[in-house]
């Protein structure tokens, strides 16, 4: 046997070994936009990012989100927003954005050492 064995794991099979014999097709662009899904798990809690999915419109996005993210009563409310409308901070600027908060420990209650009688304040 002369094949070269490349280390791989479940779910990581080298593509050189393809052998299905099916012709490659043209990429058909469905072009359904991407949506971000936010789920409120319980009345009174924040909506939390759950994941994303593709859908033709908002109504379909909500329906799909229900099927995909709330099959076990994980939610009581769903928000969807088209991913292109999300704006994010730049990770390269993380230092200048968040660093200044680092040396302001007086913003935390533990900074203040009070006498024992009132320290539960």
């Amino acid at each position: 046997m002369s094949f070269q064995i490349i280390k791989h794991y479940y779910g990581d099979i080298p593509e050189e070994n393809s052998g299905s014999g099916i012709e490659k097709k043209e990429v058909v662009k469905t072009a359904w936009p991407l949506w971000e899904v936010f789920i409120r798990s319980k009345q009174g809690l924040d909506h939390k990012h759950a994941g994303s999915l593709h859908a033709a419109d908002a109504a379909m996005a909500i329906e799909n989100a229900r099927d995909v993210y709330t099959r076990r009563m994980e939610g009581v409310s769903i928000w969807v927003v088209e991913s292109i409308y999300l704006h994010a901070s730049n990770p390269d600027e993380a230092e200048s954005l968040y660093e200044p908060a680092n040396d302001k420990i007086y913003r935390h209650p533990t900074f203040y050492q009070l006498p024992d009688e009132v320290n539960h304040m």
Partner: peptide, 16 residues
Amino acid sequence: RDEMINDLLSGKAKYS
């Protein structure tokens, strides 16, 4: 997603 699906359907991509 379209490219991934296409690679699966054409046999280029692998699965378990």
